[in-house]
Structures are given as structure tokens and as C-alpha cells.
């Protein structure tokens, strides 16, 4: 459903993505792993449409990059993209106003389940609560492709668990979820496939259970093996 063709991104003299090719399938949860500066965030930013590749292209269910892909791609960035002046309620109506695939009923239920209240201001939320709000906003769209950049960063264990729950319950046969993270233990049991990025290229990719079987290693151990012997 997501097809990436020889994607390259250069900043000044630095090459962040190096002729990257990748095809992702529907109904799967992917873990996008790699050390800092391996190109994870840049890749997600390009697919979300906030950054342009230097060369190469991608398509989501056959649609070319642009407004058409933005309609079906839901992006959760690491930083806080929700305006600080807004209340939780404002965020809900904002998403409802702009995204045809946003499910306000589901979002409201989740807001309550997360212990958030519509009157709270974004600027008054703790990191944990903000993380919960961000995941609710991103996953309450019935998108085709979800891009989650470090969804567990800075979150307490309870918030992490709640974020995980929402990710799992949102996974559908016709949608794909990509989680970029370095907290591997957290996603070990929920991902189908793993993608290891290094210096802007895919160096290993596969079904996690198959990798466990053939290599007798956990994803975390595999990560160490892949990135240690440099």
C-alpha cells in the first residue's frame, strides 16, 4: 500500500536518505528502528508531506504525494504539534473540521478513557497527558496509513500502556501502522514486521516471529547485533 521508490534526501552536504526503496503491506504493524540520524524521522516527515525528497517518489494506495495522500495519512510527530492555546475540545473540533476520516465519537470516548477533559488547555497538560492526547488525535482518524514517530517518548509506564492499547485496537485489515522508536521492548510483542534503517538505507527487514525463529533472538538483541558491529 505504501510504495517508496529510490527516495533520497540531502541536507546541505549530509545525505539522510540514500536511494531508499520500501514496500509496506496493508493490515500490518511495522516497527521502524534505527539509531539517531538513521533517517527514521526524515522518512516519516516526507511521507506525511511536511518535507520534500531531494529525489525519488512514493505513493499510498496508488495516490501520489500531495493533498490526496494527506487525506489518508495520519502523522504523529515527536514534538508537540497541537497549538498550545487550544483546549482538548478545540483539538477535537479542529480535527473534525479538517479530516473527513476523523471519528469524533470514538475520539471523545478515548479522551474520557484517557483521563482527559475537553476543557483542559493543551499548554496545561503534563508530558504523559499530552502524549495520550496526541495518540488519541492521530488514531481516531480512520486513516489508511498511520505514522507514529516515537509515540512513547518521555511517557510514564501507565501512559505507555494506554498508547499501546490504542495502537493495537486501531489496527485494521485495511490500514497500516508504522512506529518509529528506539524503545524496542515496548513494541516487541505488538509489531508484525521490523525495518532496520542505517544511514538512510534499509539494512534488514522481516517478520519478527520469523526472525526470532531463524536467529533465536529478540528484536532488541537483533538491534544490538545489527548496529553494534559497525
Amino acid at each position: 500500500m505504501l510504495k517508496i521508490n529510490s527516495l533520497t534526501k540531502k541536507y546541505f552536504t549530509r545525505t539522510v536518505l540514500d536511494n531508499l526503496n520500501l514496500t509496506l503491506n496493508e493490515g500490518k504493524i511495522y516497527g521502524l528502528l534505527g539509531p539517531n540520524a538513521s533517517g527514521k524521522t526524515t522518512l516519516l516527515k516526507i511521507i506525511a508531506g511536511v518535507t520534500q525528497p531531494t529525489s525519488g517518489s512514493f505513493s499510498v494506495i496508488g495516490k501520489k504525494a500531495g493533498v490526496d495522500t494527506k487525506k489518508i495519512v495520519s502523522f504523529l510527530p515527536t514534538i508537540n504539534h497541537l497549538p498550545r492555546w487550544m483546549t482538548v475540545g478545540n483539538c477535537l473540533s479542529y480535527f473534525q473540521d479538517f479530516y473527513a476520516d476523523f471519528d469524533p465519537k470514538l475520539a471523545k470516548e478515548r479522551i474520557t478513557a484517557m483521563g482527559l477533559e475537553p476543557k483542559q488547555k493543551v499548554s496545561s497538560l503534563s508530558t504523559g497527558m499530552l502524549g495520550r492526547l496526541k495518540i488519541v488525535m492521530a488514531m481516531s482518524r480512520h486513516a489508511k496509513l498511520y505514522l507514529l514517530d516515537e509515540p512513547f517518548n518521555g511517557l510514564d509506564p501507565i501512559s505507555r500502556e494506554k498508547v499501546l492499547e490504542i495502537i493495537l485496537e486501531s489496527s485494521q485489515e485495511d490500514s497500516t501502522i508504522v512506529i518509529a522508536t528506539h524503545i524496542i521492548a515496548e513494541i516487541e510483542s505488538i509489531i508484525d514486521e521490523v525495518i532496520f534503517l542505517k544511514e538512510g538505507q534499509v539494512i534488514l527487514m522481516g517478520n519478527v516471529d520469523d526472525l526470532r525463529q531463524t536467529r533465536q533472538k529478540s528484536v532488541e538483541e537483533l538491534y544490538r547485533e545489527v548496529y553494534d558491529n559497525v
Binding site: 506525511a48 508531506g49 511536511v50 493533498v67 490526496d68 494527506k70 487525506k71 495519512v73 502523522f75 510527530p77 514534538i79 508537540n80 504539534h81 497541537l82 497549538p83 479538517f98 479530516y99
Partner: peptide
């Protein structure tokens, strides 16, 4: 600012 990540992912031309 970080809000750009919200505004530029909106399906708007």
C-alpha cells in the same frame, strides 16, 4: 514552530 507539523499535514492546497 512545531505547529507547522499540524498545519502542513492538513489536506489543504
Amino acid at each position: 514552530s512545531d505547529e507547522g507539523f499540524l498545519e502542513f499535514t492538513l489536506p489543504l492546497r
